[in-house]
Design a binder for these strands. Structure first.
Lengths: 157, 157
DNA sequence: TAAAATTGTTAGATTAGTCTAACTATAAAC
DNA sequence: GTTTATAGTTAGACTAATCTAACAATTTTA
């Protein structure tokens, strides 16, 4: 199966996300979610239907096929991981992390994704808790210089 | 001035990069660089010319205007930083770092870019040299677990 | 249950980006 | 200095993604 375009990935992810909080999916909700007009949604849904990713009863509800669900989940997982990496590791603000994750999720290769995920896990499972070096990075980002001593494991409190 | 599209950013960056190693820029070289056909280049160059970013003598050479040069350099700098972050910090392979940087450079916001740059600098200027924690991350990425002791600053050799 | 409101669809236009094929200008080689 | 090769351009087609405006189906409500 050919890769989806960025746009179609956005649509299928939107359907997935909407479906998390409501059992019923409508053209209008997708339009609202993605800030587009309904004809654009109808168009996109048509293309997703052709690919066997979505079932759409005319004038009725939409649902993801199994294949569509799987794909949508993959896209959304990527999104979540990139968001988390930007926000929790790099310390980017919530809004911008979301926005950037949303944009770049379509373009990150498996290998890079894999390293990001490992990085997040590396931080989350650090034996010393929130890692000293990450505290140091936040200090560095704020003050433009390393904290006075960082050759020893100096916990400040 | 309106932001360039991804595609136009690629074209203007290509011109900039080609220009680094050769004084003369031709339609054909751009086409080769970006893996597109010459009519696509002509088309794109036309749009860049309209925006006052490029000067193109018909059937002749191309050059960047001052404005074009400035913009192209910004795009390329972003590219370089993202590449370096993926490659040097995350440890992504050379090829994939390049490919991913090339794709996502168009979508990263200033804030995220800023944090990435700071992260690279944080690593590069670490008082202990190549940071212990980054060694630990590489170990973690390879073996799936943290090295046996990392609560002390244990230099292994 | 008929009118009104909401939601969904279709048709047609527009922009961007790409291509192939045909053509034209310039440069190189003889 | 013609011919030939190379490089650049134009025309026309195609795909994807969006929109507005007009229309159709469904649902709500009075």
């Amino acid at each position: 199966m050919k890769k989806l375009t960025q746009s179609l990935e956005d649509y299928i992810e939107a359907i997935y996300v909407i479906n998390l909080s409501s059992k019923v999916i409508r053209v209008k909700e997708i339009a609202k979610f993605l800030n587009v007009k309904t004809p654009s949604v109808v168009d996109a849904v048509g293309r997703l239907t052709e690919k066997g990713l979505v079932i759409h009863e005319k004038y009725g509800y939409l649902e993801l096929t199994d294949k569509g669900y799987k794909l949508a989940k993959e896209v959304n997982d990527k999104h979540e991981k990139v968001y988390k990496f930007f926000n929790k590791v790099l310390g980017v603000s919530d809004n911008i992390s979301k926005k950037d994750a949303c944009n770049i999720e379509h373009y990150i290769s498996k290998e890079t994704m894999d390293r990001m995920i490992k990085f997040i896990k590396f931080v989350d499972t650090c034996p010393e808790g929130y890692p000293e070096w990450l505290k140091n990075f936040n200090y560095y980002a704020k003050h433009g210089r390393h904290p006075s001593k960082c050759t020893k494991n100096n916990v400040s409190k």
